[in-house]
Design a protein around this nucleic acid. Sequence first.
DNA 1: TTTATTTTAGTAAAGATTATTATTAGGAAT
DNA 2: ATTCCTAATAATAATCTTTACTAAAATAAA
Lengths: 136, 136
Amino acid sequence: MSQTQTRMTRQRAVILEELRKTTTHPTADELYGKVRERLPRISLGTVYRNLDFLADSGEIRRLEAAGTTKRFDGNMVEHQHVRCLCCGRIGDIMTPLPTPAVSGMHVPGFSEIRSARIEFDGICDQCASARLVAND
Amino acid sequence: MSQTQTRMTRQRAVILEELRKTTTHPTADELYGKVRERLPRISLGTVYRNLDFLADSGEIRRLEAAGTTKRFDGNMVEHQHVRCLCCGRIGDIMTPLPTPAVSGMHVPGFSEIRSARIEFDGICDQCASARLVAND
DNA sequence: TTTATTTTAGTAAAGATTATTATTAGGAAT
DNA sequence: ATTCCTAATAATAATCTTTACTAAAATAAA
């Protein structure tokens, strides 16, 4: 009996609708502008909260890796990166998988595709052992 | 005569040294903490400016895609993304290249590799035509 | 040295996101 | 329909990250 209920509010519905209507991969603030045309009194915090909610419940996607704090790497040897899904920690993959070839690729809206890279997601040791104690 | 000279200052040298010494892919603020152990009077702005300088001159790497504003996507059909190197605009690649397999991968410091994805960099149409006029 | 110019420290400002709190409104149960 | 419980909202403040500004210091060349 103690499972929390979720409510489909007008705000949540409009946010979802407006996001599905566009292909521009908007930021929270850009979407706020769109949604406000229909719900002038909505607040930016509501947009942020619902985008998080919708992404967590699998109805929309967060663009991967975006929005995290900038990180730097002094190692110029070719390698790839894993990001911990839990804490954001970055690990190095020093034996990289082959990079996909982009020559000849054509994407609408883009005049040129320059390069491609593989990014990995995983769970780091620290977060994995923390989970043994406090499991979701 | 009008080419600007660059100076290897103590601050720049220490920032580069400390970044090369670690494999943690630090943020500007984390590196600031490290560098301050040796140069207590350095300012955070100097760290940011030199990280930008070093990345632009190819001595260090900026972690790809990190640090941009969060973006969202309402399209749950499997696809990949291109990011414009110039303006950050995102495009969709609806005929994705095959995703690399991660089963059996082992990375030191990580207990589990969950998934991999391919990300693309390119130049969008708007930026490409802007370049025709104002070329770097 | 003197000079010209880059770089720095310190601080302010801007931008993005999260937290707080009193109020509103979903929707289940009456 | 009405009542009631609690999730969700609006409004705002606070935090975190990054960039901009400026007078002073440092670097390299003349």
